[in-house]
Write a protein that binds this DNA or RNA. Structure first.
Lengths: 257, 257
DNA sequence: TGTCGGAATTACGTATACATTATTGCACGC
DNA sequence: GCGTGCAATAATGTATACGTAATTCCGACA
């Protein structure tokens, strides 16, 4: 790589800054204090969150396209942060960016759902096993139990949206408690990716009574520190649910959503 | 064009472009032809590849820092594409970007290795099971066998670097053949993340004879379409190797590399 | 002597400008 | 009539400009 720039283009390895590493003086103090109170949020993140929210809530439905400039104008910022947000969303699989066509919100196909469920099945079951193996804290038990209780309550009241929210909370807690940040990140990302599909099928699928039971059983297994049972219960839960969903979508002829 | 959108900033949902969706005329022909021959690579990708290569090969060792401007100067481009590349590398876990300190190449700790191996163990074993379940094609069998043969050859010749390359090829093929793009992407990303550590421990660990045997056995299980065996063999292989590595690093006191 | 406060500088986040390249509309030939 | 080539236009990729926030440097003070 003959990058010209004449004299001694210094190798990026040799840090040219005056040797002051590891030296953060107290000027940071006020800065830190400010950062805590100051709710300042970078434009890039605002763009990311705004666009993601619109996608998850179907304001930007799958298949819809948008140009950088349109989004920038709509969000009242320049193209730069929008562009960065789009790249991030693309890496998360929510949108695709085709060079001159703007971003396109990606529809989820049945095949996509199958891929995602295959991964979630394994990773969540692994998480369940890990929690049971190390022994859960009381707070964790409570977190999971509360989520299940909320699922029960929602189901009694026939509030499917609330049930879905609680179910999502349960799954995300499970991933969080496993203590594997990377696993958690993957699970969270894929959950977002399937959000739309879950919301849609919510009213088309049979009442998810079984899910509540499964989760209750899982909590019991975790509480009694039985890694094998925890893994098995949740793995089966996920496989069963995945199959049901794929079969349901296939039956309804919905393979783009 | 007074695009300051004073009145009625149009909602991003209503695509304002003239209704010409699904209309790509033959003008694309020459463009496509050009794109194939033209080796034109966007700066952003050049930056990404260049920086990633330097990280994987320890030219930018873990812990080293670099500013956007430095990298831009070194690569002969502006800050913009460098910045985009950095964001991508950060999302892949290779670097961290602290607001005023530039990017820092992330060291891999023993805990990180444990996290990554936990995930790879599950996902690769799942891949193995999936391939066995659907029945491998002859080409796939050949691909895997060739990789194993190369591992054997390298081990005979005591060429550890070649062994590592072949081993990596085997694992990546496994992930690729599973037919789950997302799974493949995750495995590839984490492989890159542990590249440095594997290269380092290569000479410190016992000769990896066992790995070759494990992989041979896995190919046999896949060939005979035994999903259970395929999963078990590879899962055990990964668990064993992961434990060995973590124990080795712990014993040597290397927990940042 | 060591710590503090403030000015200068720096690095970044964002906006804007510019060049390139792809797509569209249209005139033209078969 | 339909497909083709060319000019116009638009959208992107990249570079540059600019304001802000943070860090460093430096002099004063306890």
């Amino acid at each position: 790589m003959a990058d010209k720039k004449g004299p001694a283009a210094r190798a990026p390895g040799k840090k040219p800054r005056p040797a002051n590493a590891g030296r953060e003086r107290q000027a940071t103090r006020q800065a830190r204090a400010r950062a805590e109170t100051d709710g300042r949020v970078p434009q890039t993140q605002k763009a990311y969150e705004a666009i993601k929210l619109r996608i998850l809530n179907n304001v930007l439905p799958p298949g819809s396209q948008a140009l950088e400039q349109e989004l920038a104008a709509a969000l009242g910022m320049s193209r730069t942060p929008v562009r960065e947000a789009m790249m991030r969303l693309a890496s998360e699989g929510l949108v695709a960016v085709r060079p001159r066509h703007g971003m396109r919100v990606l529809p989820i196909s049945v095949a996509d759902m199958a891929e995602i469920y295959e991964i979630l099945t394994e990773l969540e079951a692994t998480a369940a096993r890990a929690i049971a193996a190390r022994g859960p804290t009381p707070a964790e038990i409570k977190g999971l139990e509360d989520a299940v209780a909320e699922m029960d309550k929602a189901l009694c009241g026939d509030d499917l949206a609330a049930w879905a929210a609680a179910d999502e909370r349960f799954h995300k807690l499970l991933a969080a408690y496993a203590g594997n940040k990377r696993l958690q990140a993957i699970v969270d990302t894929f959950f977002d990716q399937t959000h739309r599909a879950r919301m849609l099928t919510l009213k088309l699928r049979p009442r998810p009574t079984r899910s509540n039971d499964d989760h209750r059983a899982l909590v019991a297994a975790i509480r009694s520190r039985d890694p094998g049972a925890a893994h098995r219960i949740h793995h089966e839960h996920r496989v069963r649910n995945g199959r049901m969903l794929v079969e349901l979508l296939g039956r309804l002829g919905l393979n783009q959503l």
